[in-house]
Nucleic acid binder design. Structure first.
Lengths: 194, 194
DNA sequence: GGGCAACTTGAGTGATCACTCAAGAAGGGT
DNA sequence: ACCCTTCTTGAGTGATCACTCAAGTTGCCC
């Protein structure tokens, strides 16, 4: 009996596995179990474990950016859009959100030495993300929401680092209230910039 | 020909390896090469790969805390001590420093699911570290360096997250000037608290 | 220098790793 | 109903994993 597989569904399963277990400690056996695909099919569809991982990173980044764009469109201003994104992107505030920036952060910290293709893909996605943040801050400057002398790129870097710090802290802190508080603080900081 | 080994030196080698490669992707072969010890000796001295890793985490945390205490003693005030610590602990500003908080941060993000003993050890060390930060902030409050209504624990959590965010960003940003800038900004933020 | 405890050695353990490929099933066109 | 392409299957590949242990070496006490 043969089973036909949905590539996207399998990719989502893989994303979740890689996210929770990490790249190195996720085995092909794990991936087979999670996706319901056999090794041959996995390799026919994705090429290799590393390529599958890269695809999962890309898929995640795309989804996160779509959420951001959507919230940005709904919000009354660039900064308010970012603030909403911070509040929504975190899994504690909305379990159905495409989850926190954490996957890219986790990936960056665990694969800092190893497969070159993975590092390149990560670098590409993170740089892209910083550029998007910078773009939003620039819009805020142009709209007069931020002083004209503000440095959009620098603000983007700081937000990137702040989000990463939050992800880290959320991973170890059991008390949801504490995290909610920190997320709220960051959103406020972005809204008011100081 | 037998070779007698220095356990501490071997532990340092292991620490460095685990730090750069990550726990899962560091093999016993790697550890043998780096420490010059044979598998039997490694197991006689440390028990297992996981225990060796826990020891390296502990060693790192201890060293980092010693540096903090030293800088704290030299500095004119609790907050200034913390600021100095932030400036010094980062590898870009001093290659001989015991390195950034990054090892614990990296470890937390890469072992979020797996060996229970490792998770427990990490949780213990990070909680300990937060407590130390909170203690310093409390000293700052008592000394009048911070307003009496300040929340030492909350400030400690924020600093912990900020340092983690910095570690993350430093890992991917190639431009040393940018990182120096961010480190400096964080130090200033700690000194002036806003 | 003989005896013994403590340490070092490294080939070997079974398990698991990422990955392959020949054989079989399914689906479509005629 | 038949062929032919395309996809699925899963046992099998050699490599490498964390780890063990019997044999060998060393250093110390008398």
């Amino acid at each position: 009996m043969n089973v036909s597989h949905d590539k996207n569904a399998a990719l989502d399963q893989a994303l979740e596995l890689f996210w929770t277990k990490g790249y190195a400690s996720t085995s092909l056996k794990d991936l087979e179990r999670a996706t319901g695909m056999h090794p041959g099919s996995l390799y026919a569809a994705f090429g290799s474990k590393a390529k599958l991982y890269c695809l999962s990173l890309e898929r995640y980044a795309t989804r996160l950016n779509h959420l951001r764009a959507e919230l940005q469109a709904q919000a009354g201003s660039p900064l308010e859009g970012l603030a909403q994104f911070i509040l929504r992107a975190h899994p504690l505030s909305d379990a159905n959100a495409p989850l926190p920036v954490c996957y890219l952060v986790k990936a960056t910290l665990e694969t800092s030495q190893g497969n070159q293709a993975i590092e390149d893909k990560l670098s590409e996605l993170l740089t892209q993300n910083d550029a998007i943040f910078a773009d939003v801050f620039q819009q805020a400057i142009d709209a007069g929401e931020l002083p004209a002398h503000s440095d959009a790129a620098k603000l983007a870097r700081q937000l990137s680092a702040d989000l990463a710090g939050l992800c880290f802290y959320a991973l170890r802190e059991k008390d949801a209230e504490v995290i909610k508080d920190m997320v709220g603080d960051l959103a406020t900081r972005v809204r008011t910039q100081h």
